[in-house]
């Protein structure tokens, strides 16, 4: 279908974008549009007005600041794929197809908090930080507080995710994904990262309502034990005709084992 009617605005700077959002609470940010537009075409989303921030140069690109990479929210998946970031390039490779990767953005994906998106697992395992600007100024949100629920991130109304701060060096990392046969999003995905200090962090995505850390896996791996089974409780997972909660829980175990073997 066509989307319902909407107004369209384009911001020329972050500052202007924030001012426009403060003035008009109906404004919905559009980045690459690769999650928002499909929802609008199905009329699942009917925003009265869009604010396009895709073209903002200040939100694009990757720069190094000491031991972190600062990644602009409008950096595309394709740019991430070709970058020196830890883990993210491997994950970006799993996102959609070349058309999606040329247009979709890392910030859009993480702000959107799609439960079956790939990046959130990596963000949690890497322990990235989110730089968010809003009417009250700028704040930094740790990864563990970013993914609040299904399609719900810590980015609030009137706020803009501007940057993601990613640790520049880790000792090892891996992402294992099991694709949905139709959408190719993650039915389950597990990221495992061995940080510079030797600590292992792990997280899963796809299987539940939101991406989450895998404390039991981390505990075992940090104790030098194998990944094992029973990492997540099926009772907390999603199920559909492609994958029941029980199967998703099993997949998390399998993928965790495979990812752990690679770090």
């Amino acid at each position: 279908m066509y989307p319902a009617n909407f107004d369209y605005h384009r911001a020329s700077s972050v500052q202007e974008a924030l001012a426009m959002m403060a003035e008009n609470p109906d404004l919905k940010v559009i980045a690459g549009g690769h999650s928002l537009l499909p929802a609008m075409r199905l009329r699942l989303a009917q925003p009265p007005a869009l604010l396009d921030v895709f073209g903002l140069e200040e939100l694009r690109g990757i720069r190094r600041e000491g031991d972190v990479f600062v990644v602009g929210a409008m950096t595309t998946h394709a740019q991430v794929l070709r970058s020196e970031l830890p883990l993210f390039p491997e994950v970006a490779h799993e996102v959609g197809d070349p058309m999606v990767r040329n247009r979709g953005t890392i910030g859009g994906s993480l702000a959107h908090a799609d439960p079956s998106a790939d990046y959130p697992a990596a963000a949690l395992a890497l322990g990235v930080e989110f730089v968010i600007r809003g009417p009250g100024g700028e704040r930094t949100v740790p990864a563990d507080e970013m993914f609040v629920g299904m399609f719900e991130s810590a980015v609030g109304l009137g706020e803009l995710l501007t940057h993601i701060r990613i640790p520049a060096s880790v000792r090892g990392s891996a992402y294992e994904k099991f694709k949905h046969p139709a959408s190719h999003y993650a039915i389950a995905g597990v990221a495992v990262v061995r940080h510079a200090d030797g600590e292992i962090r792990a997280a899963y995505t796809g299987a539940g309502e939101r991406a989450e850390r895998l404390p039991l896996l981390e505990e075992r791996l940090n104790a030098g034990q194998p990944a094992g089974e029973g990492l997540v409780d099926a009772a907390n997972l999603l199920g559909d005709r492609f994958a029941s909660p029980e199967y998703r829980a099993h997949l998390v175990d399998v993928l965790a084992g495979r990812a752990a073997a690679r770090v």
């Binding site: 199905l42 949905h180 046969p181 139709a182 959408s183 190719h184 005709r241």
Partner: peptide, 25 residues
């Protein structure tokens, strides 16, 4: 391997988009 025009028992169509209907790529 993939395609399935699935209905529930009452005839609600469960595979109405390419997000639900898997064609080979």
């Amino acid at each position: 391997l993939w395609e399935d025009a699935a209905y529930d028992d009452e005839g609600n169509f469960l595979a109405g988009t390419f997000m639900e209907y898997a064609v080979p790529r």
